[in-house]
Design a protein around this nucleic acid. Sequence first.
DNA 1: CTGAAAGCGCTTACAG
DNA 2: CTGAAAGCGCTTACAG
Lengths: 353, 353
Amino acid sequence: MNDTTTGAGKGARRTGKRPVTVTDIAQAVGVSRATVSLVLRGSPLVNVDTRARVEAELRRQRYVYNRTAANLRRRTSSSIALVINDLSNPFFAEFASGVDEALGGKGYVTLLGSTGESPERQQAVLTTLMEHTPTGFILSPAEGSDAAQLRQVLGTHANVLLFNRELPGADWDFLTLDNQQGAYLATRHLIERGHRQIAFFGGHAASSSCHQRRSGYQQALAEAGLPAPPQWMIESAPNRLEAAARTGDLFADGDRPSAAVCYNDTVALGLMLGLTSRGIRPGGDFAVTGFDDISEAAVAVPPLTTLTADPRERGRQAAALLLQRLDDPEAPPMRTVAPVQLRIRESSAARPT
Amino acid sequence: MNDTTTGAGKGARRTGKRPVTVTDIAQAVGVSRATVSLVLRGSPLVNVDTRARVEAELRRQRYVYNRTAANLRRRTSSSIALVINDLSNPFFAEFASGVDEALGGKGYVTLLGSTGESPERQQAVLTTLMEHTPTGFILSPAEGSDAAQLRQVLGTHANVLLFNRELPGADWDFLTLDNQQGAYLATRHLIERGHRQIAFFGGHAASSSCHQRRSGYQQALAEAGLPAPPQWMIESAPNRLEAAARTGDLFADGDRPSAAVCYNDTVALGLMLGLTSRGIRPGGDFAVTGFDDISEAAVAVPPLTTLTADPRERGRQAAALLLQRLDDPEAPPMRTVAPVQLRIRESSAARPT
DNA sequence: CTGAAAGCGCTTACAG
DNA sequence: CTGAAAGCGCTTACAG
């Protein structure tokens, strides 16, 4: 069975009583449907008097424009699909908010899809969304996504903007954070405050963002002539619990780091928990930095020095890039790197003891 | 000019090359379009062999079902509109996530709209969404919304579920949190820990949720025979800054409270800031409770005792209620009160000193 | 300036 | 079991 047809008709609902259509208006005013259509679309061809009568009737009957019908006839679309992992991640919620704001301003409506970080669900969600004929896609791919699979469901759709996660083999537009520069800034910050033994903590080495952050970290250390032994690069799933559980790995060796550049804020918060439960005061005895500037970062104990990417602004930027793509479908794929800023909160990155 | 026609065609985009249609498939297989349609919709009428040939061709040509066209012809819809204040509020982000999850499971797609807490933007957003003919609306009204105005744009649309904010004069389904019970639980908690002078801090008295929370607070005090002088009911916009600025109002009088039930977590966090800057240790010298259990509540200093509404579950519930409404458009409007649970985090609600 | 006709991609009785 | 025809609500050349 063809995937695209699975569930066809499922969830479709008979809408209420017959709505008012252009035909109703045309009959009432005594003009053709074409004339009503011209009025609706603001054509200058229509006689001012005719226009006024039509508009009055539109109001009187509380006519509601059926944009989906118009889109079908004109072979256009006025929606875009936004597919992310999960809105309960504040970073993506902010991002979505920015996308929706920018797109709404341009007359587009946002179709929402959540993958829950599952490539299978992602395929299903994209399939459903495709059936609604969006103009384009803004997609933050689920971990483990495969470009070929995506191409299979997205088909010839050129209007796709990938966000945040690199996808080998994909030739769509791509918007990414400056991960390397961010980690570089965090590492330099720790170095400037006197740290000489700095670990990189958390993330999956296989992911592109982790790879880039690690390389920014290594670059800063190399420039300062500081060591970056492999046992100081510690992997952890990006959640608080596992990060806390991995804390011990930092101190397995004799030569202990005095600070850690963390993959992201969640991992940093987990590490802070882990440190505390070992009697090590984060910020006091051991410096920590994060990445993302989630809202908890500001109220954590101690407040977390981190990198802010302004996710809402990234959302606006993603929308703008997609619109640009729509204007020139033939242009070669663009790769855009968004800046990232160090947000210093003194206490989490204290001087070494 | 009719509002509903403003911007018609704006943002519409020519879609790429001609897509594969049922006609293409029918011609290739040598059957009628009707037969292809029956296959697509899984009709048992079709000969198994015919079905197989059609399905093979659908795959071969990578056919994508055009659900919008089908919806037009069938006079159905497979989308619902979700309109909230702003996704950057984690409570609503979680809520939206739950809605989308539940709706996606039923074959619906979510159309997103944000009001930014502005009734004017809300009207514009709803107007646009209406043009996309959603099956129903889940709407958390902007502050200052007016039922008559909403009815004007939503028209005869019966399939509307209001969430979280009471709207006088509205006769749509309504899902609300048990605000009264929540504040009652928080107040009792403080009383049980020995507090006798308890204030209610934050929120706009005019809003229904603030009113309900205050009345739960008063009920608990009344049951315990404790005073609730009017100067201990302090208004504040629900943001951190204003809450911090209002802190002094708690201590204007001679008779100082030793604890405050706060309108929500944001206000509570602001109050905690305000207390700290006055040298009063929140949790230590002055007990505080919140409402919402936003993610900062757990990591605040001290961790905040609050009420959790499980917003994601509320989202699922809202979706379920709307689906129920679709099944029976004639049923009288339902009012559903969702439970709320006290989440005790010891340190923020210490015993009085 | 306005209308008659055709058509977007699909589905649904109705024949056979 | 399958096909011819009509139609969802709109728009677009094309005449006049």
